[in-house]
Amino acid sequence: MEKYNFGLDEEMIKELSEEFAPRNFVKTLKLSQPHTIEDARASLEEYGRELARRSIEKGEKRIDRVYHVMKKAMEKTGEMKFPFILQRYLEIAYLSIQPFRRLRIVANSSKIISYRLNECSLYKAIEEEYGKEAANKMVCKSACFALIEEILSHFDFDIKPSLEASMADDRKCQFKIER
């Protein structure tokens, strides 16, 4: 049998991680000035959306064997677009900007996809640049919500994601997307 590559295209992850480096992006937020918080929120949303768009754009071109087999399975069964297409792009996006090597998936069934971030480079960059108080306002969640919502709408899912735990209160973020 052919020696397939089941992993994500490494070049793709590298390109995305350069384009969306959290530290560089966070510097542009100017969060120390209170009146800029709305602007900051808007640019975080734009960052999340753009990360989703670019992940999908690149990911649809660079098809690893897992995605190939997954697509065949979806064709055959008519199922699994939920959760796996969403999961694929969430993983590509997060693995590009986060320090961890695997996204902690809490559930990925036919009805629910949920994941947890035990550490977050975006939150950390805001904390380092603007202090703990600024970080704990969780303005960064706008980026994650925009990322999820953009992926959902790209693949024609009308679902509202929710945040079940946050870095500020629980020292971890947990998102849930339930049909």
């Binding site: 992993g7 994500l8 490494e10 992850i13 897992v66 997954m70 796996f84 999961q87 694929r88 993983e91 590509i92 693995l95 961890f100 090597r101 695997r102 996204l103 902690r104 998936i105 809490v106 559930a107 990925n108 069934s109 009805k111 629910i112 949920s114």
Partner: peptide, 13 residues
């Protein structure tokens, strides 16, 4: 459902 959950990918250094 947690007992069925796994990521699809892992980043390899």
């Amino acid at each position: 459902p947690e007992n069925y959950a796994r990521p699809l990918y892992k980043k390899v250094e």
